[in-house]
């Protein structure tokens, strides 16, 4: 399993033909305390770079974009009731959704961990 990153600070962890999507630890640290999250409905078709979810901190609202195109096959149901999980464990328990990848070729346009870390200056 490999994790890919977008310039908008989403990650997609690919397992087989499914990608687990969320926002990075850097994204949550910039956003601050998350107080609200809106997830898509299971079955929704999303496009790479299209709006997939909404996350709001005390200070601001942000769109979460789908890193890859495909069908939303699962969402993290517990997240809207405990949005702080996104701050505590963004790349683990704080995942947003699982997307069945429509085109694995899209992954080539994303960053690997080393490239993402370089971008955020980590």
């Amino acid at each position: 399993m490999t994790t890919y990153y977008t310039k908008d600070h989403e990650y997609v962890r690919v397992e087989g033909d499914t990608g687990i999507v969320g926002i990075t630890d850097y994204a949550q640290s910039q956003l601050g305390d998350v107080v609200f999250v809106e997830l898509p409905e299971v079955g929704k078709a999303v496009k790479a770079g299209g709006e997939a979810a909404v996350v709001e901190s005390v200070k601001a609202a942000s769109d979460v974009y789908a890193p890859v195109s495909g069908e939303v096959v699962a969402v993290n149901d517990g997240l809207p009731d405990s949005p702080a999980t996104i701050n505590e464990d963004p790349e683990g328990q704080g995942w947003f959704m699982k997307i069945r990848l429509a085109d694995k070729g899209e992954l080539a346009g994303l960053m690997d961990e080393a490239a993402y870390k370089a971008m955020i200056g980590a």
């Binding site: 601050g32 305390d33 107080v35 901190s57 005390v58 200070k59």
Partner: peptide, 12 residues
């Protein structure tokens, strides 16, 4: 300063 290490929620 918009916030310190604790973050807005904790500071509030």
């Amino acid at each position: 300063p918009v916030q310190y290490k604790d973050g807005i929620l904790t500071e509030h």
